[in-house]
Amino acid sequence: MKMLLGLVAPTSGRVQMLGEPFSQRSAKRVLPRVGSLIESPSFYGHLTGRENLDIVRRIKGAPTTAVDAALETVRLTQAAKKLAKEYSLGMKQRLGIAMALLGSPELLILDEPTNGLDPAGIHEIRELIKSLPRTHGLTVIVSSHLLSEIEQMADTIGIINQGRMLYQGSLSGLEDAGRLVLTLEDAEQAAAMLRAQGWQIEQVQGREVTLPVYEDKHIPQLVSSMVNAGVGIYRVEIRRRSLEETFLELTERAQTVQVAA
């Protein structure tokens, strides 16, 4: 994210922002169209929230109305007159987001935006971020280590591990199709029988027989064939790996690949 804003120079490779290759010169054109909150929020402690925002507004050349609008958006209007150094962690975070919103950016880059917020605040900011593309017509890039949060916010995600992009695509692409898992009285016998009937058995372990997920219309047939054969059925379910498990597997696999390499 720092590289996208020119705060850090890449050791190799190139950066493209808003359709342009990023350089000192293009930065002048590009950066005014980008709002960001990187690491912990920056502010002038000796100034009030409103004064801080006014300064950012003037730097970005935004209209005077932008400050009130930003304060309203992050729900800091009440605390606007307090000195920034007296803000709680959550309020500082909101102030940082408000600063990022000033100047009607086309792109918002937010680094862990719900950091330090209470559950109500997390919900609020998450809903805000989700609404921004619709209400302000902008794109938001959010970084987070909370998969549950990303799941609820993002359409497209990227997974970076040790400097490498492991996955980039839609969230649904990471969703696990799942497996059909039968918990039976005598798994071995049942598996043999099902195999003979042409069902695809992936794995038998303990009392569980794992099959690929068949369409709903095949399930009654599967169940009745087992019942007719006298197989005791305890459970028929679809098990999906959680996003977390998918993520961990992806990163672990990448690690072993790296070790092997």
């Binding site: 804003l5 990187i38 502010f43 730097i59």
Partner: peptide, 21 residues
Amino acid sequence: RMEHEQANWRRLASYGAHLRI
């Protein structure tokens, strides 16, 4: 000093405003 505190130089750089400031 006021810019060194709270990483304000970084924020100004992210606006591309550090030289202007």
